[in-house]
Computed example of a mutant assay.
Amino acid sequence: METGDWVLIDTGDIIIHVFRPEIREFYNIEKMWAAPDVEEGTVLH
């Protein structure tokens, strides 16, 4: 784990992701889980 860029801990009910800062920025996992912007029924890109 000392050289791990991304560590995933699965506790059963909760999944924890631990990243090095540059890896977190590269994968941008928050964007994967974010709701799309919706305006008048259309998705904005």
Rank of each mutant, 00 (worst) to 15 (best):
M1Y: 08
M1V: 12
M1C: 10
M1G: 15
M1Q: 09
M1I: 09
E2G: 04
E2M: 06
E2V: 13
E2C: 01
E2P: 02
E2Y: 10
T3Q: 14
T3P: 01
T3R: 11
T3S: 14
G4Y: 07
G4W: 01
G4S: 14
G4V: 04
G4F: 03
V7F: 01
V7W: 02
L8C: 14
I9T: 15
I9P: 05
I9S: 08
I9G: 04
D10Y: 03
D10S: 05
D10H: 13
T11R: 13
T11P: 00
T11E: 10
T11I: 09
G12N: 06
G12H: 06
G12L: 02
D13I: 00
D13N: 15
I14N: 13
I15W: 12
I15S: 11
I15N: 02
I15G: 01
I16W: 03
I16H: 12
H17Q: 10
H17V: 02
V18I: 14
V18Q: 12
V18D: 02
V18E: 10
R20Y: 03
R20G: 06
R20S: 10
P21G: 07
P21F: 00
E22Y: 03
E22A: 12
E22W: 12
R24W: 09
R24P: 00
E25N: 09
E25W: 02
E25R: 05
F26D: 07
F26H: 10
F26T: 11
Y27S: 02
N28S: 15
N28C: 09
I29E: 10
I29M: 13
I29L: 14
E30Y: 06
K31A: 13
K31G: 01
K31F: 05
M32W: 13
M32S: 12
W33N: 05
W33Q: 04
W33M: 13
W33L: 14
W33F: 11
A34H: 00
A34K: 06
A35N: 08
A35P: 00
A35T: 10
P36S: 03
P36I: 07
P36W: 03
D37S: 09
D37W: 00
D37I: 08
V38M: 15
V38G: 00
E39V: 06
E39F: 09
E39W: 02
E39Y: 07
E40Q: 11
G41F: 07
T42M: 05
T42G: 03
V43T: 06
V43W: 05
L44I: 10
L44D: 04
L44E: 00
H45D: 12
H45F: 07
H45T: 11
H45Y: 08
H45P: 02
H45S: 05
